[in-house]
Design a protein around this nucleic acid. Sequence first.
RNA 1: GGCCGCGUGGUGUAGCGGUCUAACACGCCACCCUGUCAAGGUGGAGAUCGGCGGUUCGAAUCCGCUCGCGGUCGCCA
Length: 606
Amino acid sequence: MLKTHYCGDLRKEHVGQEVTVAGWVHRRRDHGGLIFIDLRDRRGLVQVVFHPDDAPETHEIAGDVRSEFVLSVTGEVAARKEGTENSDMPTGEIEVRARKLEVLNEAKTPPFPINEETEVEELLRLRYRYLDLRRERMQRNLRLRDKTTIFIRKFLHERDFTEIETPILTNSTPEGARDYLVPSRMQPGSFYALPQSPQQYKQLLMVAGVERYFQIARCARDEDLRADRQPDFTQLDLEMSFATEEDVLSLFEELFSGLVEDVRPDLKYVSPFPRITYEESMRRFGTDKPDLRYGMELFDISDLAGSSEFGVFRNAVESGGAVEGICVPGGTEFSRKDIDSLTTFVQGLGAKGLVSIGILGQPGSLDEEGIRSPVAKYLALDLVEAAAKRSDAKQGDLLLLVAGEGGKPKLEPGSSSRVRPSLDGLRREVAARLKLADPQMLHYAFITEFPLVEWDEDEERWDALHHLFVAPMEEDLHYFETDPGRIRSRAYDTICNGEELGSGSVRIYRREMLERVLHMLGMDDAEAQKRYGHMLEAFEYGAPPHAGFAPGIDRIVAQLAQEEDIREVIAFPKTKSGAEPMTGAPFAVTEEQLRVLGISVVKQPE
RNA sequence: GGCCGCGUGGUGUAGCGGUCUAACACGCCACCCUGUCAAGGUGGAGAUCGGCGGUUCGAAUCCGCUCGCGGUCGCCA
């Protein structure tokens, strides 16, 4: 090695030793005579001093050194003089008195500061990702990610799981997200797909008798991106034979708890993890991934609003819609402008509007003076009292209500199916404005009993909500022919702080059941055989009951790192348009490359 | 694909119709400086305001289109 010690490791005990350290120039302080250089490596910073009297030539070289130069410095570790110690640095009690300095490489002035945590435009950071990753925050995140995967592997190996790799070049998934396709040269016109998840392989590993499998698996889905979605991402893929929901959920509760204690012992988490059914979650929070760090649960006054004088409410209910709301603690403090902006906000989510009712008086004995609302004159006092009671409103709280009409298309503003999504968004927005969520808290929970299928309006057929291999709940099997939308599945999600971390289920492991589901989704035998023949066949050879789970590593690490965006915990992420600004991917291929593959590119019509 | 936001020296921001010959901080360059640690001091270079078009006597500032980035809805089994 070109160094004997890491910069950040030097301490008082090294005083008197001659060491060679190597790293990057973090900062230089040139006093004309004395020169100080903070040298940085992966372990931290150490101050190097260049005395003109100690080594004049070395001192002279140090004068020409600039930020991010790569140096090798040999010298003696010395205790700092009385009064010049720096208690802010772990190495602050000592310094290296440079005897010899070698410039291993020079560096241009970086396009953004490496030595401080300034916000820099993300595109620029990605273009120079190798410099961005040199910064402390990114180094910390990369290490945290490493600690996370180390923990997971150790935890699962201790429980007798086997890590098994599955193919990167695989088959297209007929259902689900859009595939990334890879052309086959040897079979022109045929394509591989990158895995959206190793779902089928892991079930086949169960048939193979592995019993306990996991993989830290790379996956790819060609869909539009978000702060929590990258085109290629990593998930912890896991499957267990002879397991029930309880086995999987308790395993993951233990895993997540242990993980927090191992890598972020300074953060809090809830124990035990709440388990909430899908139906309950939708009713209480309007979403299947609620942020449980604060209250403001939804309340429903549809039953009362139907007889209201207020046309917006009455029409909503009479058309089969709903009137629901949340209660903002202390919300009467909101200004007219605050409420206007919240109205605009929910309209963006498909609500027709927002009705606000400030509770100025004491609930239970409200009079006209006791409520403040733009539509006060249409609202009967007993309706407001009832709403206040259901939401447990106190004096000073603000009720925010959204009404939606039934029978409208799902996405049309004012549709009843926009009520809960709007209130979910509103709840998050208000919580963010009032800072209701404890940033030190990781509020994990499990959501269970998802519906098995949902109606696809465009294709006019039932579609698997999760995927095809989710086992339906035994007691709902009779709905298969009568009311598929009511079939509950044995699927579950893990959520944390309002984000979905991953999902899983008890699987179908019998041919008949898979066929039954495929038929319900409108697939005939020939089609089923063509697409899922290998699964149907495998299930005929003694497939054991099994269940699995697949949480996203990127999201888990982002939360542990307290980052809002998974790009902050991915070494080389892509922009929203799927580009990778450093390498320039994706790129235009040559005619020759296309010819070999038997592909011709059609210009997109304008 | 829809909607919303942003795009000003190397970086982060200010300016939002004329006095902008574009300001501030950091960085950069030069000189001074032997105990600093976001060192200090003095001086200096550096942007025509993402691009195109329009409105106007006059545009960084207003409008349209476009590109890029981001957020969100659709989408993401």
